[in-house]
Amino acid sequence: MCGIVGLLVKTPALKERLGELMVPMLIGMTERGPDSAGLAVFADPLSEGERKLSLYSGLTEDGADFNWHGLTHGLKAHLDVDAKIDIKHNHAVLAFRAAPEMVKRWLREHHPLLHILSTGRTIDLYKDIGTPAQVADRYDFASIKGSHLVGHTRMATESAVTPDRAHPFTAGEDFCLVHNGSLSNPNGIRRMLQPHGIHFDTDNDTEAACRFLEWRLREGDDLETALQAGFEELDGFFTFLMGTPDKLALIRDPFACKPAVVAENDDYVAIASEFRSLAHLPDIKNAKVFEPAPEEMYVWNA
């Protein structure tokens, strides 16, 4: 079991309140996922040549005491990259104007235990073990601003409870996915993708789905075509919620084994595994509430 939440706001004023509205959604899914939690938020993009990485130091020897400023000094000294860093304990967002692959290669070489959570121009990603309330508090989720986000609360079934196996998973740039369910053919998907040079960070089944869909997008599929390929190739139980810089997308397996409910009004689209995570939202009593059908694609534009 796991919990999924998503929120996309349509009115500019609500962008300021994105995190505040989402935290009760995430905490509402604690019973479905008490072991880890995570969140990816999409905000105004950096300019064309800039990139940002979300980084997690909890797996390094120094943990939350990681020397983040030493890292930016190293980047300057070795690569002549001026990076800005925004630190929250064992997490930092590193922004720079340089080729992201070069920076990531340097990070893997000099800080192999530092976990790269996400890459892109719009996405910030946080995930860690702990209850949703603890994780939300650790990273001050309530203060998060942006146009849309996806969140997850995890009750692990398919791989160990570790920060890197928490959701959301990312692949490529500005793409993330959260999953409630379990896949039966993740190893087949991995064996199919690895010859294409696709590297996996963990043994988690959701990571296979995430990298498969991002690979389809990178190969030129539009989102709908990629999701259709997902229906054909990914076997098992799933409700997937995905985020891109301008979209949220949701699909459910043909048996609708894992729940999802959507509430929509003029101000927002909110998605959760269960209605109890939506009950607090403003004017929810007048929102259109519905259950997304199995094997249908739901895509909302930010």
């Binding site: 269960e274 209605f275 109890r276 995570s277 939506l278 009950a279 607090h280």
Partner: peptide
């Protein structure tokens, strides 16, 4: 006759 207010998706 019992009325339940604010069920809010409780199980």
């Amino acid at each position: 006759h019992v009325t339940v207010l604010n069920p809010d998706g409780a199980h």
